[in-house]
Design a binder for these strands. Structure first.
Lengths: 223, 223
DNA sequence: CTCCTTGTTGAACAAGTGTACAGTAAGATC
DNA sequence: GATCTTACTGTACACTTGTTCAACAAGGAG
């Protein structure tokens, strides 16, 4: 038995109600403000990346994860690539948010290190997402644009803290260069931890951070 | 006008020869020893990864790059994933090959650092390949198996050099832990250099390596 | 030359890809 | 209640995906 699609003024729900001879009251779907739904799709995209890498970042997967229909990504983002760019921006948003306390009135080098080791950042799922995204940067102009903007923003935050610490110690250093090296180390530690958790503990990563910065700034008192 | 396919004992080449009324002497394709063709497919796979990341690692792309037909990957590797695993193993082969001189009778910490900066290793194309592969490790059992084996092999080579250097200096260190940190740093530097070449020069990367190892081993004479 | 092995081709297949779009309906506003 | 905006659905589309497989042919062995 098949039902004909709704025609004219009678909704499918009305027809169905009649056919099964009882009212169907529950709405078939929920409407969200555009921003809310966009955020939901971004979240679903992140989940897909964490679960299966860039290969699993498909319209079908994402919409299923978000419990929405296939058309929604196009409606809210225009294209899948635009959603991917939004996903990447979200990752940087969160990274920078964790750094925010560090960037406060009193820059604190220990807080910088500990922020990098925070569970929101230093965890395999999060890393899998970074990894999937990094692998796409070279092949995706939209992603590259986001990267260029956000990376510089992030680097400058780190450089500021390092420069402040160096000034407080009366040391002359190239804070920008050290910031890049620090980020490189951070990325590398995330990488090892993300690929094989057992290979590199948080404690080992912490030691690397301190050793690296002490080489440039002198002894740092650990908390 | 269309030609019927070859039937019975007459080859398509014979029929074509007759049709255009002149001999066709050039073979339609070349046969290679299995190993040779496998190597060609691996090379083509590497090229695809460098050009377009894991998304470009498709049967069509690879076979086109290798100037072969679609069926060849299945014939030589069984599946696309098996080829990917072989590609990954090849990357480690080459990395370990560059390290080989380091691992010789007289382990040399400077040679270790310089090997990591060698143009065969420290270049954006090579990094794009690593990046694409790393992003897949978590989602691909075959790849994970290769990683587990080769990474340990590689780490032990690095640890050996560090341990020897530490012994020569009479220092007590955890060479394995330092090796992991060293590899993490190395990966991170490759990453920055590969994503945006202008962000991190070879010279800056060199400085990071020396600072990192000097923190553990004391002053190192630079070449 | 005539086998014979096996590397190679290319079409066929089902399943999955992103996008377009016409139509549906939720829920705020009046 | 009626009206309207727009979030949302779901199908259709053209195309790409990896794998299978029967047939072809290169090139060495005899």
């Amino acid at each position: 038995m098949s039902y004909s699609p709704a025609i004219g003024t009678r909704s499918l729900r009305e027809i169905m109600s009649e056919a099964i001879d009882q009212p169907i009251s529950a709405p078939r779907f929920r409407r969200y403000p555009s921003e809310t739904r966009a955020a939901m799709l971004i979240e679903a995209g992140l989940t897909c990346l964490a679960k299966g890498g860039i290969t699993a970042f498909t319209v079908d997967n994402i919409c299923q994860e978000a419990k929405a229909s296939r058309g929604l990504i196009a409606h809210h983002f225009g294209s899948k690539d635009a959603l991917l760019a939004a996903v990447y921006a979200t990752m940087y948003d969160r990274l920078i948010a964790v750094m925010a306390p560090v960037d406060a009135a009193a820059p604190d080098i220990v807080a910088l290190i500990e922020a990098n080791l925070a569970p929101e950042i230093f965890n395999p799922d999060s890393l899998k997402i970074w990894l999937a995204l990094w692998g796409e940067i070279a092949n995706n102009a939209e992603l590259r644009a986001v990267h260029r903007q956000r990376y510089v923003e992030f680097r400058d935050t780190v450089a500021k803290v390092i420069a402040a610490e160096a000034a407080a110690r009366g040391r002359q250093v190239d804070a920008g260069a050290i910031a890049v090296a620090f980020i490189a180390l951070s990325d590398g530690l995330w990488l090892e931890h993300g690929i094989d958790e057992s290979m590199l503990s948080r404690e080992a990563a912490r030691a690397s951070f301190y050793a690296m910065l002490e080489a440039h700034l002198g002894p740092i008192a650990r908390p």
